[in-house]
Design a protein around this nucleic acid. Structure first.
Lengths: 296, 296
DNA sequence: TTTCCTTACGCCTATCGTAAGCATA
DNA sequence: TATGCTTACGATAGGCGTAAGGAAA
């Protein structure tokens, strides 16, 4: 095998010029070393690349093929160095972003659009997972950024910012009489059937539902415990009860469900953006800075 | 930019081993020059490829990307040399084969199948053209091989072999009374409407038709002069007359046309395989030898 | 005789291996 | 103290340029 790119450059120049003196000039060298490089390349590969005599230089069939490969190798050499530099400086790269299913329909497309415009070289790879999975994935390095619900316990080594705040809404079948109310008050919910989140996988909304419902007396009747918002919405649409869901659940687009705002001081839901203390790549760091700037 | 493949090999080995001593051993060298090669590669590219201290070696984000490119370049280097050698020896390559439309339906598929099995590395590119175009293309180098009809004048610099011989058949509408004859005799064709080939583009069959029809007296009535067999067949199927065509015209699959053999000593049609005296590539030469061997 | 590719040779740069240096567990 | 990456240095191989050689128009 041949050993250096110099030989490839010589070969390409000669293949294009088909004239040693002109090719050598293009390579800023004299003819004899060019002649030698070509001979060495032919010896190293065991392939006659040019038919030549003192009057004529012509590519062989094998040389014509090899020209394509030589150009490819040189092109990869140039591009890869350029791209590697851009990765090092944070102007290119791939960043994985985790998100919860509901935020995927509302926050993620908007964030993606703004980020891709501001940082066009950075590719954002999306992974949908629930909050607890996101925390693990951040700590293992499988995720760089996470759009997730707040966690009760502070997670060591992780940083978070409040990314978004939205009201909780009452989701109920649109045929239900309460769907006519402009605003829901605690007394409306007395002893109503209420679907709520599972206390482990959907802990944040489970606790939030209990807290908001503390104002209702006597309490509603909790009929199901479900981990994911879209499953809850499906049950609501089929008349199994009502539920408290974050406002972005509207974007799930499930038909037959009405959404009504709660009384004014009812607690709101937050979405956090979180990451490890030290960034895994420069691109990740630039994307973080962009997001923090946007939060401003 | 970096200048040699040695550095890439060093980089790949270290990226895979993540340990200078082991990587150096794999490269049949000692650690210090490996260390130097890596440093030189990093300086030449301007990219920090490894995070390292005296206890730990780890790829950076940019280094991880660059590893892919390095592997690509080395793979191309190896494969391209191998392929170039095979082209040089005639075990790989591309050969263009010209053929006339009618032989395309019969001779070409069979030839292709046998050649591809015997010479699997050689790719055969097909180009359909009439005989006179094939002669020009052979001489200009645009074609390597040609399956064509005989030419009257010997073509300088070209070699041909008889590749195939087939009888001429009478093509006629299947509703015609003569379609019931097991064999056509000269007297059957007296003063029948006869579609024939054009004297310039379809010269071989034009002259053959005249020669065969010389036995018929009084002569048939020549109603059209057409250059391509499939056009002639279309006119026959629509009742415009009958025609003498090579037996392989059956494979055109035009409905409503019957084919009947002529009297026993009627002249037969030949197909030639032709090429330039000197081959343009080793693959071409090997394919020629294969074809001549098959002709026996 | 001119053109143009190749061979010959001295100079210089670059890589190798050995040996010493130095940081970390 | 042991491990393991880096620096130092002399020896060697390989590339460049200049100059001479040789084949074809």
């Amino acid at each position: 095998m041949f050993n250096d790119f110099k030989k490839l450059q010589c070969f390409i120049a000669l293949a294009e010029e088909l004239h040693f003196a002109r090719a050598a000039e293009r390579l800023f060298m004299t003819q004899p070393p060019l002649s030698r490089q070509i001979r060495l390349l032919e010896e190293a590969t065991g392939v006659r690349l040019f038919e030549r005599n003192s009057r004529l230089v012509r590519l062989t069939e094998a040389g014509t093929f090899f020209l394509q490969s030589a150009r490819q190798m040189v092109a990869i050499a140039e591009q890869s160095v350029d791209t590697a530099r851009r990765i090092q400086s944070g102007h290119a790269g791939r960043v994985t972003l985790g998100f919860t299913a509901v935020s995927g329909y509302y926050l993620v497309p908007e964030l993606l659009a703004r980020a891709q415009q501001a940082l066009p070289g950075i590719e954002i790879v999306l992974k949908e997972m629930v909050t607890s999975e996101q925390v693990d994935a951040l700590q293992s390095g499988a995720l760089a950024l996470a759009l997730m619900r707040p966690t009760i316990a502070a997670q060591p080594g992780l940083i978070h910012h409040r990314y978004h705040r939205e009201p909780m809404l009452l989701a109920l079948p649109d045929s239900h009489p309460l769907a006519q109310q402009a605003q829901i008050l605690p007394e409306h919910l007395r002893q109503q059937p209420m679907i709520t989140y599972a206390p482990n996988e959907g802990r944040y909304f489970y606790e939030m539902t209990l807290e908001i419902m503390a104002d209702v007396s006597p309490q509603p009747i909790f009929v199901q415990h479900i981990s994911q918002t879209h499953s809850i919405m499906a049950l609501v649409s089929r008349g199994f009860g009502m539920a408290l869901v974050p406002a972005s659940a509207r974007y799930l687009g499930i038909s037959g469900v009405a959404f009504r705002p709660l009384w004014p001081d009812a607690r709101q839901a937050e979405t956090w953006i979180a990451w490890r203390e030290q960034a895994g790549s420069a691109a990740e760091e630039r994307l973080r800075e962009f997001i923090v700037g946007e939060l401003g």
